[in-house]
Nucleic acid binder design. Structure first.
Length: 685
DNA sequence: TAATATTACCTTTTT
DNA sequence: GGTAATATTA
């Protein structure tokens, strides 16, 4: 059967290596494809899908799950190349969370969500926890709200109730916050990201008819990045695959870097125990990197215990050794990276788009950006684009969500006094008391506030005006369903634009926030052009599930930019030249990990492994001898992972930038430092 | 009672 | 360098 790309399925399969082919052709039971970095796992998934469709499987019955929308989009695109656009469109290719939202929305009433589903993001979650802490009179300074959120999320995904947490684990305080948080979610009819999966599973468990409907819909399931799944996601897969047993999961235990988000590495380590009729196939031939890079990566990761032992190999030759550079401080490190990039470009013709600079924490991007700006090196900071975190964007989104769903009280409370309309804490309290006493949605009370004790007539009138405004906005959108013009009108008519411009934190001129919104409006306009027929609800869902990439994609990476990103966000990507900066204790492994009681650095080591395996030809590992402290510079130690690299796989290069006059003394000191590093590393290995 | 000024705090990774 | 919680003023 010929496929869209003009290559037959048979040819596609013939081009695979034996392990890949086994993974594609395996039928009759779950299969785990252990795919090391750069071993062609996406190829396996996409060819497997194409092969199954060629065998006669209805594309509508294909479910392919990934962790990011970007990955889902790329997968859909590649599948479309094999089976054609229409067939690809018929498939369900998306994230666990988008599937969860679909499942939950289809039967929201059965879960007790009568006023629609309000999906809250991380910031709203944090705010909810702070509210809970206040209610419980817990000092947020003594107990970090973020810690509670992590604990709550872990407990929920592991199926631990607040009662059990309190009784079995003795964590009374956390359990009380946990309980209050669940109550908060219920009161606001809100769901957080965890709920999308948890609730879908709950729905399946409590309503067999719903479960069977979804079970029958899908005839085969494929999961990418399986090492990042959590217990609840495993449950979801087991339920859906229970009848047809056609499940193909692809992942690499050595690249499991999301334990802090609840990912459970035992899912991949014990796949055969979870699915008794399962087969495992390992892909170890690496098509990405040269020999020294793989040798270094293999050596480092072999220091981890509890892994499915495998070693990557290549037949492209040794290539170049890794380059280790030591610099005085993060600024010098950044200048070294920048100068080296300029040198690679002018002397070796390396394109900027072929270079990635990777770091452990976002804060490390700062000095790099500065050095790049000075040298006018174009770059693209990936991920750190907290566009949807900005106040003005959140305000605007709240208005939009309110138009779609007036019962979204999280959003209503956000904008009830923005722009300032004289609604303070006292008015709010009266309003909320009445709402809970009369079981009336807050929004319905807005035009009845004049009957509430403690609310002045003038304030009541303002609240009524707000309700009219939202209603008017909804009517406008109904009459003219285009989102971008609606937003423009909304910001103007609500007085938000005025308020942003007047904001004293803006400084003189004061158009920064408004410029952001103008950018937002343009971005919405482009999205509307791209996805014809998308409505406000659909757009909000898109943003909620994947805020960053919807904006980033608009910025469409020019090829001539260096990529700056975190190690976490680099998984799955590759560059001919990679810089892994900040290779020192406290950065990688991160201090937070070292401070934990057991100090288990295995996930940090995997993160380092991910970084090294991003490089195709040249890998730089840089470190600075000092770090900036709140009061001055502090000595740092080289990362223990550097010491795990075999001596033959790396070479030391001089890291300090030589700008200005360098005295002989300085040169001597540099040499001494290099010798010292060599000694330290030798001492460790 | 609401608006404005001041101070404290941060910064691991993200669907 | 920005937000968010608190103190002060209108």
């Amino acid at each position: 059967m010929p496929v869209a790309s003009g290559v037959s399925i048979k040819e596609l399969v013939d081009q695979l290596n034996p392990e890949q082919r086994r993974a594609v052709l395996h039928r009759g039971g779950p299969v785990l494809v252990l795919a090391g970095a750069g071993t062609g796992k996406t190829r396996v998934i996409t060819v497997r899908i194409a092969h199954m469709v060629a065998e006669g499987l209805d594309p509508e019955r294909v479910l392919a799950l990934t962790f990011t929308n970007k990955a889902a989009g790329e997968m859909a695109e590649r599948v479309a190349g094999f089976v054609g656009k229409d067939a690809a469109r018929a498939m369900t290719v998306g994230t666990f969370h988008s599937l969860g939202l679909q499942v939950v929305e289809a039967d929201a009433k059965r879960l007790g969500f009568t006023r629609g589903v309000n999906l809250i993001d991380a910031a709203e979650q944090a705010s909810a926890v702070r509210q809970c802490l206040k209610q419980l009179r817990i000092d947020p300074k003594r107990h970090d709200p973020g810690m509670f959120l992590t604990a709550i999320s872990n407990a929920r995904n592991a199926g631990i109730t607040p009662d059990r947490m309190s009784r079995m684990l003795g964590k009374k305080l956390t359990a009380s916050v946990y309980r209050a948080y669940l109550e908060w979610l219920r009161a606001y009819q809100a769901m957080d990201f965890d709920d999308l999966i948890l609730r879908a599973v709950q729905l399946f468990e409590e309503h067999p008819d719903v479960r069977d409907r979804w079970r029958k819909k899908f005839g085969t399931i494929l999961v990418d990045e399986y090492q990042d799944t959590n217990l609840c996601q495993l449950k979801l897969m087991r339920i859906l695959a229970d009848e047809h047993r056609s499940l193909c999961v692809v992942g690499d235990d050595d690249q499991s870097i999301y334990a802090w988000r609840g990912a459970d590495i035992t899912n991949i380590l014990e796949f055969e125990r979870h699915f008794s009729d399962a087969t495992a196939i390992a892909l170890t031939q690496n098509y990405r990197s040269t020999g020294h890079i793989l040798s270094a990566a293999n050596a480092v990761i072999s220091n981890n215990f509890d892994r499915r032992d495998k070693s990557l190999w290549t037949d492209v030759g040794e290539g170049e050794q890794l380059r280790l550079a030591t610099c005085r401080d993060p600024g010098a490190e950044a200048r070294f990276v920048a100068d080296e990039i300029l040198r690679l470009r002018s002397q070796h013709g390396v394109m900027l788009g072929e270079i990635g600079v990777l770091f452990r924490t976002s804060a490390q991007a700062g000095p790099i950006e500065e050095a790049f700006r000075q040298r006018q090196i174009p770059y693209r900071l990936v991920g750190a684009f907290e566009f949807y975190e900005r106040k003005e964007v959140r305000d605007t989104l709240s208005y939009l969500r309110l138009i779609v769903n007036p019962y979204d009280e999280v959003s209503l409370l956000r904008i009830i006094n923005f722009p300032q309309r004289g609604v303070g804490p006292k008015t709010l309290e009266a309003l909320r008391d009445t709402a809970s006493a009369t079981k009336t949605p807050l929004f319905s009370l807005l035009d009845a506030a004049d009957c509430i004790d403690g609310i002045a007539a003038s304030t009541a009138a303002k609240l009524a005006r707000l309700k009219d405004f939202i209603d008017e906005a909804r009517a406008r959108y109904a009459a003219e369903p285009a989102i971008a013009p609606l937003v423009e009108w909304l910001c103007e008519a609500s007085g938000a634009r005025e308020a942003w411009i007047r904001d004293p934190t803006e400084g003189p001129g004061g158009t920064r926030r408004w410029k952001t919104i103008e950018y937002l409006i343009r971005s919405i306009g482009r999205t509307e052009e791209r996805l014809v027929g998308i409505d406000l609800k659909g757009w909000l869902r898109l943003v909620a599930l994947d805020g960053r990439s919807t904006v980033e994609d608009e910025e469409a990476a020019a090829a001539e930019e260096v990529a700056l990103q975190t190690l976490h966000s680099s998984k799955g990507l590759e560059w001919p030249v990679c810089f892994l900066i900040g290779c020192q204790e406290g950065i990688i492994p991160h201090q937070r990990t070292l401070d934990t009681p057991r100090g288990d650095v295995s996930e940090e080591r995997r993160l380092f492994y991910v970084g090294v395996t991003r490089a195709r030809r040249i890998a730089y590992l840089t470190r600075s001898e000092t770090k900036r402290n709140y009061r001055g510079l502090e000595e740092t130690k080289p990362s223990r992972f550097l010491g795990e690299i075999p001596a033959g796989d790396y070479t030391l290069v001089s890291g300090d930038d030589l700008e200005g006059n360098v005295s002989d003394d300085d040169k001597q000191q540099q040499l001494a430092r290099l010798r010292e590093l060599r000694a330290r590393i030798a001492g460790k290995s």
